[in-house]
Design a protein around this nucleic acid. Sequence first.
DNA 1: AGGGTGACTGCTA
DNA 2: GTAGCAGCCACCC
Length: 111
Amino acid sequence: MDREPTRFESRVYEALCRVPAGNVVTYKVLGEAVGCASGQAIGNAMRRNPFAPEVPCHRVIPATLRLGGFMGDVRGDSIVRKRELLASEGVEFNEMGVLMDVSLLLERVPD
DNA sequence: AGGGTGACTGCTA
DNA sequence: GTAGCAGCCACCC
C-alpha cells in the first residue's frame, strides 16, 4: 500500500499547496493546474495522499460543492473531520453537506 | 500489454 | 432531490 509519491502525484501535491487556507478548489481545477483532464485521476492522488493534512487535501471538493471524501473514506467519520478542518479555516457547509459560500471556491490554482 | 479500480465530471432520466 | 452511464487518466495487478 504505502509507497513513495509518483512524479504525477508530487506535481498534484505541489499545486495543492498553492491553494490558500480559507479557499477551496474542485478536483477538476486542480487537474487543470497540473495538465490532467481527469478529475478521477486527481481523486486517486488525493486518496493516496500520505501527508494529510500537511498537504491540504481537505481543500479539494467535487464540482457538486459537496464534501467528497477524506483519507480514503467517502462516507465515514473522516468526512466529519474534513468538514471541521474546513470550518476552522472559514469554509462552511450546511446540513445537506453543501458549500455555503461559493465565492470561496477558486476557479484556478494561484501561481 | 491488458483489464480492473476509483476522494471525478457531465449528461440523461 | 436521486440513479445510471460514458468518458476520463493514473495506478496496480
